[in-house]
Amino acid sequence: MKAVKFDPRTKIALLLFCILCTTFSGTLELQLILTFMIAVFGLLAGKYKYAVLGLVCYGVLWGTSQLILQSLTGIWQAMFAAFFALVHKVYPCGMMSGIMIGSTKISEFMVALYRLHMPRSIVIPFAVMMRYVPVVFEDWQYIKDAMKMRDVTPSIKGLFTNPSMTVECVYVPLMMAASKTADELSIASVARGIENPNPRSSLIEIHFCVQDWLAVFVFLAFFMTTLALRGGFI
């Protein structure tokens, strides 16, 4: 099956609906249906493994939480109820944004955000941020190796035996690397004309097509159902 191409704006809209649905949904069954819909969307967008794994994990989680809530009583039930409420509210949106980020290029995001008339002071930091998060983990691996070579243990144990040293050895290289990257990246992007005040053009074209309207319609219908089941008012 060939992956269907969705407009980045559709994905943003769907994420918004996911957030609204999890905020307003009254029952766990609805959350299960929502996760299933997200998994279907993931399959369509070409994230096969992610979608299937995400759905299976949620199924297990769903079963466990039902079991725990039926079998426990009193204070433990209250504790777990609060905890699982948090997990069930987080999970569908987390899965949706995972699919969204995994299936969209940063440049597509930027085009979409400019089309939505977001100001440059939000779009540029946002794009840089999305790109930099994976780099932090990469940097962290290098820093850990370097620390080992210099006999500093980047571990919980080191944090207790030698706190100030460990804190410095973690923060200083990480933040030095970050500020150096910031300098280099701004030089590179100024050289490529990011300061040009004219509207940005792009080789990537994004349109709203049939599949986008369909996806938005399905999620909107689901959201309406959620609201109706809840009692009809916000």
């Binding site: 440059r120 002071s121 540029i124 930091p125 946002f126 794009a127 840089v128 941020m129 999305m130 930099y132 998060v133 932090v136 970050a178 500020s179 990257t181 910031a182 300098d183 990246l185 701004s186 992007s189 100024v190 990011i194 300061e195």
Partner: peptide, 12 residues
């Protein structure tokens, strides 16, 4: 632009 990029990286 430099400030925006710095802000983006430190936001991450």
């Amino acid at each position: 632009v430099k400030d925006l990029i710095t802000t983006g990286i430190f936001s991450a």
